[in-house]
């Protein structure tokens, strides 16, 4: 996957030089290992900073909201699905975009790796199947498959759904996965254990809102947690308020979440906030056969109705 970069740079330079787009959004090396950062290249010279590896887990669709210029964007499977969601929700025009599709083989789980190596990781390099982790006084090689983000290991849309040009040949999609195994485990608990599960999950939340800020769906001009008239939710560290923030945010993402994992990657405390959104993804799939961001022509389930919609929850 690291071999894609030459083609990514070539396409980016070409569309910038030809004036097809005003800028290209990609990734450059971050200041810390495992953390590549978004890069907005407006000249073909700036494209030289671009990188591509397993640390490009941030969802770039997040930077498209209400932009006016013509934009080239590098899109993995999940980014492309969020781009479709953005187009459906009128946050950007398809005509404004030149999408450079990148078939993805999964991103590295930075929380897992940091936990595995308590001494700071200074450098990470990758081959097709292995990851080499280097610190001040250690070096270890791990199989790539074992250190992927959880959302990537259960991903069935690795290839971009929408693109103008591909940076590499399409990859084989994963099959025979139980995508919702983790959710089913929670569903099997009784009410008290469920409560406790989420209580423990959120115990370390500091309400920095990094999950919200990294999420391409969270583009409201004023988020409900920031409103003060009326104040929907308390602003402190009360556990009820923390939980209200997380579960309401998940509800706002119902039928829209593509399980890109940007929220989990952004979380400084390593909380698996996907456990809220994943349940809604499962419900949408089971009730409406819906997966977000697969087509420009289908309306999302919460945006439309059908006489056959399940309504057995109504007494």
């Amino acid at each position: 996957m690291t071999g894609y970069i030459a083609k990514i740079k070539k396409i980016s330079k070409q569309i910038l030089d030809e004036g097809t787009v005003d800028m290209v959004i990609g990734f450059r090396k971050g200041t810390l290992a495992l953390m590549n950062e978004p890069c907005f290249a407006k000249t073909s010279k700036a494209v030289d900073d671009f990188v591509w590896d397993g640390n490009c887990g941030i969802n770039l669709a997040n930077y498209l909201t209400s932009r006016k210029e013509k934009i080239g964007i590098i899109a993995k499977g999940c980014d492309s699905r969020n781009i479709i969601t953005h187009i459906i929700e009128n946050k950007i025009d398809r005509d404004q975009l030149f999408i450079i599709g990148v078939p993805c083989k999964g991103m590295l789980d930075r929380h897992l790796l940091s936990a595995k190596f308590p001494d700071e990781i200074l450098n990470v390099s990758e081959s097709e199947d292995a990851v080499i982790i280097k610190g001040a006084d250690y070096e270890e090689t791990l199989p790539r498959k074992e250190v992927l983000q959880e959302n990537c290991s259960v991903c069935i849309h690795r290839n971009p759904v929408i693109y103008d040009e591909l940076a590499a040949d399409l990859v084989e999609e994963q099959a025979d996965l139980d995508r919702f195994e983790a959710v089913r485990k929670i569903e099997a608990l009784n009410a008290e254990d469920k409560w406790q599960y989420f209580e423990d999950l959120l115990a370390t939340c500091i309400r920095c809102y990094a999950c919200r800020n990294a999420c391409p769906l969270c583009y409201c001009p004023t988020c409900f947690v920031d409103e003060s008239k009326p104040q929907w939710v308390g602003k402190g560290q009360d556990t009820t308020d923390i939980r209200t923030f997380h579960f309401l945010r998940a509800f706002h993402d119902a039928g829209r979440c593509t399980d890109c994992g940007a929220c989990v990657r952004a979380c400084p405390m390593g909380i698996d906030v996907r456990m809220f959104t994943k349940k809604l993804e499962k419900d949408c799939f089971e009730s409406f056969g819906w997966e977000a961001g697969l087509s420009l022509d289908a309306r999302p389930p919460l945006d439309t109705f059908n006489p056959d919609d399940p309504n057995d929850f109504i007494l």
Binding site: E192, K194, R243, F313
Partner: peptide, 16 residues
């Protein structure tokens, strides 16, 4: 809500 530990039956919907 039930998924995160509110007892089943605590929240009800009806169409009247």
């Amino acid at each position: 809500m039930e998924h995160m530990g509110i007892e089943p039956g605590r929240i009800q919907f009806s169409w009247v």
